[in-house]
């Protein structure tokens, strides 16, 4: 591309539109996180449900410690991806901060779960709808938008069942709303 040649208005517009076109479609899809966290939350919840229902394990909630492993994996993966990417779009920034805000909110609920009668699963499932639906809108990816809507419905249903069943339903919700759309997203990348 040359530098100092005199541009006609049409040429100027052509440069602008072609460059904006070039910059489009650079948003990172990040199916990795949906699959990682989908599997983590599904396994943790299913594990707790099985232990509560069929075993006498003293503290089945220790299953949730696997989230710490996934958090570490996410951080390492995020740093590596950051090193690889040569551009960051406005959508990437919104996407990142929506999920970070969600993570911070979840953390508060995990810490103070006792204050809400340990109704963490329905609360977090309902909250999950927000970043999932927004991600679907940002990526123009309908399965994730659908996942967000299913999270809202699941959240409402999970409020109505006993604590034990909550773990089973949360696990199913996560498979439907994270893992399946995440896998479809991976295939579209």
């Amino acid at each position: 591309m040359s530098t100092e040649n005199q541009l006609s208005p049409k040429q100027s517009l052509d440069v602008i539109t072609s460059m904006i076109q070039q910059a489009k479609g650079n948003t990172q899809k990040n199916s990795f996180y949906f699959l990682l966290w989908g599997c983590t939350i599904a396994v943790a919840n299913l594990g707790v449900y099985i232990m509560l229902k069929f075993t006498q394990v003293e503290n089945p909630y220790n299953m949730f410690l696997i989230t710490l492993v996934s958090a570490a994996v996410s951080i390492v993966y995020g740093i590596r991806q950051n090193k690889k990417s040569t551009v960051s779009t406005h959508l990437d920034e919104i996407y990142k901060w929506v999920w970070m805000s969600f993570g911070a909110t979840c953390f508060i609920f995990w810490i103070f779960g006792g204050k809400v009668g340990w109704q963490i699963n329905p609360i977090i499932t309902t909250l999950c709808a927000i970043p999932t639906f927004i991600s679907g809108v940002l990526l123009k990816f309908k399965p994730l938008m659908f996942g967000g809507i299913v999270f809202w419905v699941s959240g409402a249903v999970i409020f109505l069942v006993d604590i034990e069943t909550q773990f089973l339903l949360t696990s199913i919700a996560v498979i439907v709303c994270y893992i399946i759309p995440g896998y479809m997203l991976k295939r579209s990348e």
């Binding site: 591309m1 040359s2 530098t3 040649n5 541009l7 040429q11 100027s12 440069v15 602008i16 460059m19 904006i20 070039q22 910059a23 489009k24 650079n26 551009v87 960051s88 779009t89 406005h90 990437d92 920034e93």
Partner: peptide, 14 residues
């Protein structure tokens, strides 16, 4: 041409 291209690209990304 080049400066306009650069600014058009940068206006589209963060």
């Amino acid at each position: 041409q080049l400066r306009l291209a650069v600014v058009s690209l940068l206006i589209s990304v963060d």
